[in-house]
Nucleic acid binder design. Structure first.
Lengths: 227, 227
DNA sequence: TCGGGCACAATATGATCAAATTTCAGACTG
DNA sequence: CAGTCTGAAATTTGATCATATTGTGCCCGA
């Protein structure tokens, strides 16, 4: 009987029963991670209420959440905008991502069932297709999905939360870099990660993850400060 | 002239010029870190509007921010409460805190000027007084201030933000543990940290920080699951 | 170039609607 | 007869909106 009450409300986009402010938050999150929000771009409450067709209270709540996430910054003069990253910021993110996400990979290596490794490999193949097709948005979306699916088996919600927070921070900047250099220049170590998972080799998984992060982030570090 | 405008607005209660939702956020943050909010306790919007004497919109915004911080959890049934930590949660926090805060200590060791080391030492002496006096609230406040003052010289805002997020998560639980066992059983490695700072020994500072974290957090891990 | 006003956006409140929990009453069972 | 379970009403709380107020930045005129 509880099953009927707790229906799978996971439908985000369609008119679910979830509160509007939650939907607004998810929408903005997607726009930040994969969308067209560029660093430095101002974000106005009224602009969002108009474009999303909802009241301002849910929009305000979503924006506050994203500010706490580091995905948006409050500029003091009650202006909100997408953050511009400094070289120092990116360096810190590389450090933090490697520290946290290698641990997530280690934990997932011990827990992930074989069928889910297959799913991960399939996800990576679709991701390769995005790269060859030059679909930047699709690449970003699937790259995020790959890491998310990997870490989902870590049984470490606190660490996942920290990692997600970091992704929200560098999302817009990563998008700019990909848009400028194209997807061709985006090597990843996903194959190595999958191989390590199959071998149940935690350290190999951690090393491959660190290399994957290092490559993507340092490319962003090289590209952005010159902007 | 800016000095006049940017008065020490740190007074949360009195009518500063800062927006109300910011004041509410800071107030709740203090209550979570040092106050009487106990894990599992429900937090209601209307209760806060009544007790703080402000409208519901600022309260809602502050609560959303704290949920994003992990300081409060959304229980699904649109109820919000102070999180209860599992042993797994604490283990992850130990890992993340050691990874991030040791790095913050390393960076601060390279940057902190000598006079500020003196200030830090003075802070630690006041903290010792709180321990001998058995003032739990004062201990928590000064312990937080000590780490905050140390990390302030790290020039690493992203890492500081991640660390602060973790403190907000374990704050209420730490308070419970201190309240139960008293402050006498709270050894810290602050003396070692200060010595390492004076010697400009980054690795010694990192090790002392890790031990400080390990001690405090593992004590919490031992105490809480039995609750 | 500087000062005053004008317009826009954000802040904050109160009202209204919806949902969920609690409570209370009644009936059924042991 | 007592205790408990069920179900519906009532109260409490949350979500959203519309509106008034305040602060900011911009523009125009001197």
């Amino acid at each position: 009987m509880d099953l009927i009450k707790n229906k799978p409300n996971t439908s985000l986009t369609e008119g679910g029963k979830r509160p509007v402010h939650e939907q607004v938050y998810q929408t903005l999150k997607s726009q930040i991670l994969f969308g067209d929000l560029v660093p430095g771009q101002p974000v106005t409450i009224q602009g969002l209420t108009d474009s999303l067709g909802v009241g301002m209270t849910p929009v305000r709540e979503a924006i506050r959440r994203l500010i706490s996430d580091g995905a948006l910054i409050f500029q003091g003069n009650r202006r909100v905008s997408v953050p511009l990253l400094s070289a120092n910021d990116i360096e810190q993110m590389i450090f933090a991502r490697i520290a946290i996400e290698t641990e997530l990979s280690r934990r997932s290596t011990n827990n992930i069932p074989d069928p889910d490794i297959d799913d991960l490999e399939q996800l990576d193949q679709r991701l390769d297709r995005m790269i060859t097709d030059g679909d930047v948005g699709g690449y970003l979306r699937l790259n995020h999905a790959f890491h998310q699916a990997l870490y989902a088996h870590s049984d470490a919600p606190v660490l996942i939360d920290l990692a997600e927070r970091l992704w929200l921070r560098f999302g817009p900047s990563l998008r700019i870099v990909c848009g400028r250099f194209g997807t061709q220049s985006l090597p990843d170590r996903h194959k190595d990660i999958i191989a390590a998972l199959r071998a149940r080799d935690t350290e190999k998984a951690a090393i491959a993850t660190a290399q994957d992060i290092e490559q993507g982030m340092s490319m962003m570090g090289d590209a952005l400060p010159g902007t």
